[in-house]
Design a protein around this nucleic acid. Sequence first.
DNA 1: CCCGCAAGTGTTGCCGACAACATTTTTTGA
DNA 2: TCAAAAAATGTTGTCGGCAACACTTGCGGG
Lengths: 343, 343
Amino acid sequence: MPSSRSGDHRVTIYDVATKAGVSHATVTRFFRQPEKLSARTYRRVEAVVNELHYVPNAAARSLSSGRTNLVALVVTDITSAFYTTIMHGVEATAQSHGYTLILVNTDESVEKERALLDALIAHRIDGVILTPAQGEGHDLSQLERHGIAVVLIDRELPNGRYDLVHGDSYEAGRTLTHHLLDQGLRDIAFVGGPEGVSSLEQRLKGYTDAMTAAGHPLRVHLGTYSRQSGEAIFDALATDDTLPEAIVAASNKVALGVLVAARRHGIRIPDDVAVACVDDLETASLIDPFLTVAAQPAYDIGQLAMEMLIERIEGKTYPARKVMLPVELIVRRSSVRTATSEA
Amino acid sequence: MPSSRSGDHRVTIYDVATKAGVSHATVTRFFRQPEKLSARTYRRVEAVVNELHYVPNAAARSLSSGRTNLVALVVTDITSAFYTTIMHGVEATAQSHGYTLILVNTDESVEKERALLDALIAHRIDGVILTPAQGEGHDLSQLERHGIAVVLIDRELPNGRYDLVHGDSYEAGRTLTHHLLDQGLRDIAFVGGPEGVSSLEQRLKGYTDAMTAAGHPLRVHLGTYSRQSGEAIFDALATDDTLPEAIVAASNKVALGVLVAARRHGIRIPDDVAVACVDDLETASLIDPFLTVAAQPAYDIGQLAMEMLIERIEGKTYPARKVMLPVELIVRRSSVRTATSEA
DNA sequence: CCCGCAAGTGTTGCCGACAACATTTTTTGA
DNA sequence: TCAAAAAATGTTGTCGGCAACACTTGCGGG
């Protein structure tokens, strides 16, 4: 029995029809409108489908129906717990509605984003949930042109024409800053985060408003949302001996970088520098609840985004909706100075 | 200009051909064998393609060519850092070879796995990288029947007919146990992990061999690879007051559960119970290097699995290859008793 | 100067499903 | 019992590409 790799696969609707003694249209109906078949015919087709292990070809189906039941989630950092959790929410909802999920990672690069979106367009996916990468030149007009539904998560785009689901970044920045102020801290720096990204701007604005209202000067050190950025900025501050009393980190990864750099420099958190950040690090928090965070409801964001995308795919045409979900302040040790160390 | 949502998308090869004044075959050649076109024709088609933003329809292409350039990664737990890292490796390799990656999560359920594989078969994907869910009744014959390439990761299946990439689980179990024995610990329990899964059996065998060679009795408490399992088993042991001196946890999540439960019971790690586990928790380790682990090279596993899958897709037909990658023991605080606490 | 070959381009049928429409069979009711 | 309506099933063309094959040109060599 040689070459088992060829030939025998490729069961088509015609094979089923012939073997069942019906026309191929009847086989199509078996899948799409089973109620239209007589019980006798239904049973006969069913038997052959099982016997031949027939599975309709999605490419052929999509070619004639114009739908693929394919949906993509495009994120900027596949290793981030925030996006992993979102992904989980999206995936659960997609699966329960019969959509297959394609996961795509842009590594925060607009060029990669563009190339990947092209591939997705080629597949004529039904919709995309997108976190735009940092930078200029996003071209979603291609998606519109091909009738692909779009929902943004976490970050807004300038034209504001798409549905958006995001956590309350402004409140996150504000509440973290307030919390640090409540600890009696004054010299508070905002660290990390990519310029030109809406979520960052909101977080920064929250910080700025809180500091301004309290009458304290601002200290802002932007970068990216990555761990590397947190490390680099902290390194620079430590080297210049210009460390603040406290840091509001733009993301959990930035905070991670800050902690790593602080250990390297022998600087104690929270006693030398207090730290708080946006987004939780759940696994780490379970081992040792250390970082104070403003947590976004990532799973809910994913779930909601997928639900909204499905509505769009199904043709709803109301104007762009912007949904903002509340964040939760979780106070842990990284931001609270210990009594003993107040020396 | 109403109803912009319909009509104008759907640029086909014929539109391009007409506008460029050539036949559609020439447009196909523009994409598939550009060297066959005269410079003049090439430029003319190129201009129209750009003007019309034409992107070939992958469904149509796949229908006639029989290939989709779609590849799926099927894992049992999308939130696990181990799989997330693997995913990263797979994704990078897939992207650089022109494959689009579909990510699928089975939540360790064989039924879900079956349903999802059916959906993937419908899409006639070119290949699957699969972590089989715990349990009986895996039916990959469907995949074979449809000529879909398969590479397993992390876990072997009984028939042994597929390519496999995995870390050295046996060595992981053995080296962790040895390490604990070296600390002078004797009463060492193996905790967690799903029965009937090959990676677990190997880890367990490593533990068993090490303990037997040292002449110590075994203590084995199986479950799943999840955090819940670690918590539940530790809870039971603590309640019965039968805690061991040390624990080899079957996975990082199990260890996480152990740590959480230990804190709840007021039991100190490592001084009351030492802990070590398979697979690192990278983020947590950066904040606070605590858990001793035997780390599998997850990124490499993903990368290698994808490379092997591509070879299969391209028709290589050597017998099933089994690739085992070494693990690395990383000793941290969770397994080493502090001098002061030796009281 | 014409033939033959090769490079460049066009024509045709097909991949596997769906859907509109056509046709056959069954049911219903006067 | 038979016509008309309803139900069940069949026929045909189409979706958008690909590839085998057919057909033009232009050029070099005999």
